[in-house]
Amino acid sequence: MKRSIEPYVYLLASRRNGTLYLGVTSNLMQLVAQHRTETFGGFTAEHGVKLLVWFEQHATMEHAILREKQIKKWRRAWKLDLIEQANPDWQDLAVSLGFAPLD
């Protein structure tokens, strides 16, 4: 059985206006779970980057990767604007996907 790929570009944050992490994934739910449990270690674990504050689904992985590369070139202020346009209160969007709220 072929696994369905659901390409997403996402932004995680440590807190409002905190450390940001931009990435791309084919499985948003699994990715969020891994970041919340610090399975990856590294940058996101060191900086407490666990809040899903923005995400965008794409039709293909190629489109998602292009969008991620585009946003990576942006100034920080533009990324903050992107988040605040869709999520002005910096809510943890993972909760709306069924995850328990973080402490």
Rank of each mutant, 00 (worst) to 15 (best):
K2A: 12
R3I: 11
R3A: 13
E6K: 14
E6N: 10
P7Y: 08
L11K: 02
A13W: 02
A13E: 03
A13L: 01
S14D: 10
R15E: 13
R16A: 14
G18E: 02
T19V: 15
L22D: 07
V24N: 03
V24I: 07
T25Y: 07
T25W: 07
N27V: 01
L28P: 04
L31K: 15
A33T: 00
H35K: 06
T37N: 14
E38P: 00
E38S: 13
F40A: 12
G41Q: 11
G41R: 07
G41A: 11
G42P: 04
G42L: 05
F43Q: 04
F43G: 05
E46R: 15
H47V: 02
V49N: 08
K50S: 12
L51M: 14
L52V: 02
L52S: 05
W54M: 04
E56F: 01
E56V: 00
Q57M: 04
H58F: 15
T60F: 08
T60P: 06
E62K: 10
E62C: 00
A64H: 11
L66I: 04
R67F: 02
E68D: 04
E68W: 05
Q70A: 10
Q70L: 11
I71D: 09
W74M: 09
R76P: 04
A77Q: 13
A77K: 12
K79Q: 10
K79T: 03
L80E: 10
D81R: 09
D81N: 06
I83H: 07
E84I: 03
Q85L: 08
A86M: 11
A86K: 14
D89V: 01
Q91K: 15
L97D: 12
F99D: 12
P101W: 02
P101L: 03
D103L: 12
D103F: 09
